[in-house]
Design a protein around this nucleic acid. Structure first.
Lengths: 341, 341
DNA sequence: ATTTAGCACTCGCTGTTTAAGAGTGCTAAC
DNA sequence: GTTAGCACTCTTAAACAGCGAGTGCTAAAT
């Protein structure tokens, strides 16, 4: 168990390191107004904190820097509680300069605002359109063989895909198929359409469609979804201005990571509510081992539908960033739900 | 006018510099098998070529590097003519591993292939959907006030937007409106819909719609387009591996440029047919002053609809890259036109 | 039992010097 | 017209010294 003094020193040291990005020595700490101990005393404490794994040295006679464990402890126990900074909330309202009308614009602007405000890289993971409910679907032929299938969701999102019209399918069957889908499956989530059909509608299909066999294959083509979350970025190159990534060979993997869709999706996906912090190797990817990821989820009708995240060096301004992300995600939630009135 | 020997030396020097990225000295050139002159002779020629503005020195006693003018001359007059390398054409056919069915996938893959093959950054400027012709349109209400307007083009592309339904508009008018649009304006380019209506259909509207006044405002909302070209990137971070951009302060502006939509659109747009090369300051933007941009256009039914481009250092492998871009753009054209059978 | 002053020691950083190497321009000879 | 020779320039890398920041330990002070 850490003493009061150790806690205090640890916090001061990490605050200082976050601010100045340079190893912090005993003298620096002891010079602070609110510290009454001499450098020698501090040195003893620092040595202890190092033994406990909260601090590290860059070389034998350097000042200390926080270890990953140090940051973790800082975030979990030393951060002035969030409620303190409620003052900042309301801020973000001002930030949305233009009135945004569509969700996509909201996500895009949120990402930009966040990265501008923090100088880190931000990512918004948009809602998975496939989780939205079918409002209306339609098939529009564009040539003898090709057609476009269109699915409109309750949120006003439009999914579309080109499909090949098999010669074998009867035009009348096609029409009936669309009608059945619209009548029976409105309100069902896109992703569930296919299973619902399998389970509940095969009888209906059999009854109404002339060529039930071929229609099945066609349905599979029609309703085979691929992932549809969208990522919105802000400040992709902000990493370059972080002192710890001033080295090209260090940034390259990072930037490559940012450009790799599935890695990013995995990184940024989070089912937890509220704000979460993942530090360094907790991100479980080599390229992210010197980064922290702050995740906040936004909701719609109380349901988690996406996240807004910040990616920066492990030495992040956690305090500022966490409260910012907290309020911005709430703001996003509010606005999103306003849309669907 | 340059002598044969000067032409030869210039070409050899630029070839060498492109390959090794290091100032080329007289000794290096004279050592080549096909050169019979001594370093001293070469030195004289180099001094002349420098006076003429084709070469530069990095410092008083360094070897020479090509100037912008040098590259321009090289590209215009010293490049083995394209037809020579026809052998490479056909290659690109093999490169498309998966069979792509939608245009977007084709663009995306083309960009990836190109950047992989060259280690430069590639960009495909997709066709402007607004130049495509209306196949079918529809308005689907999603709530009491909101609706989604959907426009399907002859190419199977779907444009959609959310619109506010004014209370003042009659549901029956809305239906008629959609019908008129579909009957009278199929085959018209999306971008032209509004003017066509103004010019030709006001009479029709007046006759069929109860509340013509309000409909006009609504139409403006419905048919006010914003630019819709899409950019597809490949190898965004390839710049980082180019020796000339090993410096962070040099890459940063470059990467920022790549992320700025309108700058990129401008950079990559080109109405010229075939392959064009823009070197250094010819790109008219500070950030691009050390880059060359190679542009190739692809067509549909003979009409220029987009470009595929490569961005790299002014020291580019022009020969390889130009012929590659030439054949890839042709391949793209072929595949695109196959779609619309 | 803490705390602190003092001191020897370790690194990293900066600036200087040095030497090697690549290349040039010019001159005079071929 | 070509080339050998040479003095000169500039860059790069290595070696070295000195400074400053910081540490750990010990012994004295509180």
């Amino acid at each position: 168990m850490l003493t009061e003094r150790q806690l205090f020193i640890l916090r001061v040291l990490i605050d200082d390191y976050i601010k100045h990005v340079e190893p912090v020595g005993s003298r620096t700490i002891s010079k602070r107004e609110d510290i009454t101990y001499s450098p020698a005393t501090i040195r003893n404490e620092l040595a202890d904190l190092e033994d406990l794994g909260f601090l590290e040295k860059t070389h034998t006679s350097s000042g200390r820097i926080p270890s990953e464990k140090g940051y973790r402890f800082y975030v979990d126990h030393l951060l002035p509680s969030l409620s303190m900074s409620e003052g900042e909330i309301g801020h973000s309202e001002l930030l949305f300069t233009e009135k945004v009308q569509e969700a996509e614009a909201l996500f895009d602007q949120s990402a930009k605002i966040l990265s501008d405000l923090t100088n880190y890289t931000s990512v918004v993971l948009g809602p998975n359109a496939l989780d939205m409910k079918l409002k209306h679907m339609q098939i529009i032929p564009i040539s003898s063989q090709m057609a476009v299938a269109i699915f409109v969701t309750n949120t006003g999102h439009v999914e579309n895909r080109q499909i090949v019209l098999p010669d074998t399918i009867e035009p009348s069957d096609l029409e009936k198929l669309v009608n059945i889908l619209n009548e029976r499956l409105a309100g069902v989530r896109l992703i569930e359409l296919n299973t619902r059909i399998q389970k509940e509608l095969s009888a209906v299909f059999k009854k109404h469609l002339q060529d039930y066999q071929n229609t099945g294959v066609f349905l599979d083509q029609l309703l085979l979804w691929s992932k549809k979350e969208k990522l919105f970025y802000g400040g992709k190159t902000n990493m370059l201005s972080q002192p710890e990534f001033r080295d090209l060979d260090k940034v390259r993997p990072l930037l490559d990571f940012l450009e790799t869709r599935d890695l990013m999706e995995k990184l940024v996906s989070s089912t937890e509510k509220g704000v979460t912090v993942r530090i360094g190797t907790e991100n479980e990817h080599e390229a992210m081992k010197n980064c922290s990821v702050i995740n906040a989820s936004y909701t719609m009708h109380g349901k988690h539908i996406g996240t807004i995240s910040l990616i920066g060096p492990t030495r992040m301004e956690y305090k500022k960033v966490i409260s910012l992300l907290d309020s911005l995600s709430k703001e996003m939630t509010t606005r999103l739900n306003d849309f669907s009135d």
